[in-house]
Protein backbone atom coordinates (compact mmCIF):
# COMPACT_ATOMS: atom_id res chain seq x y z
CA UNK A 1 0.00 0.00 0.00
CA UNK A 2 2.41 2.63 -1.19
CA UNK A 3 -0.35 5.18 -1.60
CA UNK A 4 -1.84 4.46 1.82
CA UNK A 5 -3.15 7.35 3.84
CA UNK A 6 -3.16 7.75 7.58
CA UNK A 7 -6.12 8.03 9.86
CA UNK A 8 -6.10 8.17 13.64
CA UNK A 9 -8.29 5.59 15.30
CA UNK A 10 -8.67 5.97 19.05
CA UNK A 11 -5.43 7.99 19.11
CA UNK A 12 -3.53 5.29 17.19
CA UNK A 13 -2.29 5.92 13.66
CA UNK A 14 -3.61 3.49 11.08
CA UNK A 15 -2.43 3.24 7.47
CA UNK A 16 -5.41 2.56 5.24
CA UNK A 17 -6.22 2.32 1.57
CA UNK A 18 -7.59 5.59 0.16
CA UNK A 19 -11.10 5.64 -1.26
CA UNK A 20 -12.56 3.11 1.14
CA UNK A 21 -15.15 3.86 3.79
CA UNK A 22 -14.30 4.32 7.43
CA UNK A 23 -16.15 1.05 8.10
CA UNK A 24 -13.91 -0.76 5.63
CA UNK A 25 -10.75 0.76 7.07
CA UNK A 26 -11.73 -0.39 10.55
CA UNK A 27 -12.87 -3.89 9.57
CA UNK A 28 -9.79 -4.48 7.43
CA UNK A 29 -7.72 -3.76 10.52
CA UNK A 30 -9.71 -6.27 12.58
CA UNK A 31 -11.34 -3.46 14.46
CA UNK A 32 -14.82 -4.66 15.41
CA UNK A 33 -15.78 -2.28 18.19
CA UNK A 34 -17.70 0.47 16.42
CA UNK A 35 -20.12 1.46 19.13
CA UNK A 36 -21.40 0.24 22.48
CA UNK A 37 -25.10 -0.47 22.63
CA UNK A 38 -27.31 0.84 25.42
CA UNK A 39 -26.57 -2.28 27.46
CA UNK A 40 -22.88 -2.28 26.61
CA UNK A 41 -22.74 -4.77 23.75
CA UNK A 42 -20.18 -4.28 21.03
CA UNK A 43 -21.74 -3.42 17.68
CA UNK A 44 -20.33 -3.31 14.17
CA UNK A 45 -21.68 -2.74 10.63
CA UNK A 46 -24.65 -4.81 9.50
CA UNK A 47 -26.40 -3.33 6.49
CA UNK A 48 -23.45 -1.64 4.82
CA UNK A 49 -25.75 0.93 3.27
CA UNK A 50 -26.63 3.49 5.92
CA UNK A 51 -29.88 1.99 7.14
CA UNK A 52 -29.13 0.22 10.42
CA UNK A 53 -27.00 2.85 12.20
CA UNK A 54 -25.03 0.11 13.96
CA UNK A 55 -21.68 1.43 12.68
CA UNK A 56 -21.92 4.84 14.31
CA UNK A 57 -18.54 6.28 15.31
CA UNK A 58 -17.17 9.71 16.12
CA UNK A 59 -15.36 11.29 13.19
CA UNK A 60 -13.34 14.45 13.71
CA UNK A 61 -15.18 15.01 17.00
CA UNK A 62 -18.62 14.73 15.43
CA UNK A 63 -20.44 11.85 17.09
CA UNK A 64 -22.86 9.36 15.54
CA UNK A 65 -21.46 9.28 12.01
CA UNK A 66 -22.26 6.21 9.94
CA UNK A 67 -18.85 4.69 9.27
CA UNK A 68 -20.23 2.88 6.22
CA UNK A 69 -21.21 6.15 4.56
CA UNK A 70 -18.05 8.19 5.07
CA UNK A 71 -14.90 7.85 2.95
CA UNK A 72 -11.57 7.98 4.75
CA UNK A 73 -9.48 11.13 4.44
CA UNK A 74 -5.88 11.66 5.36
CA UNK A 75 -5.60 12.84 8.95
CA UNK A 76 -9.15 11.89 9.82
CA UNK A 77 -9.72 11.17 13.50
CA UNK A 78 -12.02 8.29 14.28
CA UNK A 79 -13.13 7.39 17.79
CA UNK A 80 -15.03 4.19 18.40
CA UNK A 81 -16.63 2.25 21.18
CA UNK A 82 -18.64 5.05 22.74
CA UNK A 83 -22.25 4.74 23.79
CA UNK A 84 -24.51 5.34 20.85
Amino acid sequence: MSDAIEIVVNAKVLRVEPGVTVASALLNNDHHVFRRSTTGEVRAPVCGMGICYECRVTINDVAHQRACMVTVEHGMRVDTGSAA
Binding site: V20, T21, S24, V33, F34, V46, C47, M49, I51
Partner: peptide, 30 residues
Protein backbone atom coordinates in the same frame (compact mmCIF):
# COMPACT_ATOMS: atom_id res chain seq x y z
CA UNK B 1 -33.26 -2.30 2.28
CA UNK B 2 -32.69 -5.81 3.51
CA UNK B 3 -35.06 -7.46 5.92
CA UNK B 4 -33.31 -8.64 9.06
CA UNK B 5 -35.00 -11.05 11.42
CA UNK B 6 -33.85 -11.50 15.01
CA UNK B 7 -32.25 -14.80 15.99
CA UNK B 8 -29.91 -15.61 18.88
CA UNK B 9 -26.55 -14.04 18.13
CA UNK B 10 -27.62 -11.73 15.32
CA UNK B 11 -26.19 -8.69 17.08
CA UNK B 12 -22.63 -10.08 17.12
CA UNK B 13 -20.03 -8.20 15.08
CA UNK B 14 -19.50 -9.84 11.67
CA UNK B 15 -23.12 -10.88 11.41
CA UNK B 16 -24.08 -8.75 8.43
CA UNK B 17 -26.63 -8.56 5.68
CA UNK B 18 -26.30 -10.43 2.41
CA UNK B 19 -26.46 -7.33 0.27
CA UNK B 20 -24.78 -5.75 3.28
CA UNK B 21 -21.70 -7.94 2.85
CA UNK B 22 -21.55 -7.06 -0.82
CA UNK B 23 -21.93 -3.36 -0.09
CA UNK B 24 -19.17 -3.54 2.50
CA UNK B 25 -16.95 -5.45 0.08
CA UNK B 26 -17.53 -2.95 -2.70
CA UNK B 27 -16.70 -0.15 -0.30
CA UNK B 28 -13.36 -1.72 0.48
CA UNK B 29 -13.82 -4.46 3.07
CA UNK B 30 -11.60 -7.43 2.27
Amino acid sequence: RERFLPFPGWTLPNVVGVGGAQALAKNGVS
